[in-house]
Amino acid sequence: MNILFKNPTVPLDTLPTVADIPWTAVEFRYRNMVLLRNLFVSLILIPMGIGLFFIFQLVDQAGHAGEDFQRIARYLVGGGASLLIAYLLFQWYVMPFLEVPRMKYAVRLQDINYRRGVFSTKTTSAPFRRMQHAETNRGPLERMFDLASLSIFTAAGLALQIRGLSPETAETLRDHVLKKISEYQQLDANNDVEDSTGL
């Protein structure tokens, strides 16, 4: 375990740590947007579920299967459907209340960090030095709630996607990222190291 920090010029306690940084939560109205989006999804899926239920009833009444099979199938389908419905209701209408306040980001001098998750938390850190481009996106629902999302790409693909930002914040962050990318390209060009595309 001590191989990593043998180098005396980098003592562990002097390293800047992600744990101590002040986090900023995404916009609160993002929760309402997610709830509305989930309502739309459920309005599409519920009629499909009802349709499937009636199809099952028709199959059931056709009498091809034996009595035991019908009983087992009814238990299985009923049990499975109840569990699925409970899970979906929880995901659609309860999770946004828990999830959105925990979606937080932090911008440091050298990197952007993004933390999310309720039962399982994940913190991703992407250094500016590795970024290749950044873009902001605004879908119809996001425009309705005056929100935007920021996507940051490295050579490994999408590194971070922060949803639920105000358009101003998203654009400021995007400009900041692009400025940083440009700064690093300039620095590398001055150092005569490789090409300026980061590749």
Partner: peptide, 12 residues
């Protein structure tokens, strides 16, 4: 966390 901080440090 130490690993993450060290990796970020080495990149940056």
């Amino acid at each position: 966390c130490d690993f993450r901080d060290f990796l970020l440090y080495s990149i940056e």
